[in-house]
Simulated assay, not measured.
Amino acid sequence: MFQGLDYATDLKVKYKQLASQLDALLTGEENMYANLSNASALLNQFFDRINWVGFYLKDENELVLGPFQGLPACIRIPFGKGVCGTAAESNKSIIVPDVNAFPGHIACDAASQSEVVIPISKDGVLLGVLDIDSPELNRFTAEDLIGLEHFVEVLIKHI
């Protein structure tokens, strides 16, 4: 049963607790959209200094907007375009300290200054990406990337 958030001060411990909370929250539910919706809400509660968190889901050769928290967003992103499309095409996580310096960045929200994107693959098949934006430059660290990749590993068990 989901117990709510009570995080430690150490970032590695926080991410471990976040993954445990996600697992508890999603256990027993098999609907992918319900689970992605709760995952985005959990991340929105977990993070400070962000302005958007959510999922883009693979549809043919593009990503389509999925469950999210934040302002309305771009609906379709072709593979290889912007940060999300680049992460999807390469199937590799990306931290962008300054989105304005990223070639081909797609500005869905002009307030976004930095971004982290984690591909979501199951059994070698890309399902989509987790995307988090911040209105601050250099918001995301290598430790965030590791923690979010673990979060996605837990998420994959429930979608």
Rank of each mutant, 00 (worst) to 15 (best):
residue 6 D to P: 09
residue 6 D to N: 15
residue 8 A to W: 02
residue 9 T to V: 14
residue 11 L to G: 01
residue 14 K to T: 04
residue 14 K to M: 08
residue 16 K to W: 10
residue 20 S to N: 12
residue 24 A to W: 03
residue 27 T to K: 13
residue 27 T to L: 12
residue 28 G to I: 06
residue 28 G to W: 00
residue 29 E to A: 15
residue 30 E to W: 02
residue 31 N to L: 05
residue 33 Y to V: 13
residue 34 A to S: 14
residue 34 A to E: 09
residue 37 S to D: 13
residue 39 A to G: 08
residue 40 S to E: 04
residue 42 L to V: 08
residue 42 L to S: 07
residue 46 F to N: 08
residue 46 F to K: 06
residue 48 D to K: 13
residue 51 N to Y: 14
residue 51 N to H: 12
residue 53 V to T: 14
residue 53 V to K: 00
residue 53 V to G: 10
residue 54 G to D: 03
residue 54 G to N: 07
residue 55 F to K: 09
residue 55 F to S: 13
residue 55 F to A: 12
residue 56 Y to G: 14
residue 59 D to Y: 02
residue 59 D to W: 00
residue 65 L to F: 01
residue 68 F to S: 11
residue 69 Q to S: 12
residue 69 Q to F: 03
residue 71 L to V: 11
residue 75 I to F: 09
residue 76 R to F: 08
residue 78 P to M: 08
residue 80 G to M: 04
residue 81 K to G: 01
residue 83 V to H: 01
residue 84 C to G: 11
residue 86 T to A: 10
residue 87 A to P: 04
residue 89 E to V: 07
residue 90 S to D: 06
residue 92 K to C: 13
residue 96 V to P: 05
residue 96 V to W: 02
residue 99 V to I: 15
residue 103 P to D: 02
residue 104 G to T: 05
residue 106 I to H: 01
residue 106 I to Y: 01
residue 107 A to W: 02
residue 109 D to Y: 13
residue 109 D to G: 11
residue 111 A to T: 14
residue 113 Q to N: 11
residue 116 V to W: 00
residue 117 V to I: 09
residue 118 I to S: 08
residue 118 I to G: 12
residue 119 P to N: 04
residue 120 I to Q: 02
residue 122 K to N: 11
residue 124 G to N: 09
residue 125 V to G: 03
residue 126 L to R: 06
residue 127 L to K: 14
residue 129 V to T: 09
residue 133 D to W: 08
residue 136 E to T: 04
residue 137 L to N: 08
residue 140 F to P: 12
residue 140 F to D: 12
residue 145 L to P: 07
residue 147 G to V: 03
residue 148 L to K: 00
residue 148 L to F: 01
residue 149 E to I: 04
residue 149 E to Y: 01
residue 150 H to T: 05
residue 150 H to D: 05
residue 153 E to R: 12
residue 153 E to C: 03
residue 153 E to T: 12
residue 155 L to W: 02
residue 158 H to F: 07
residue 158 H to C: 14
residue 159 I to H: 09
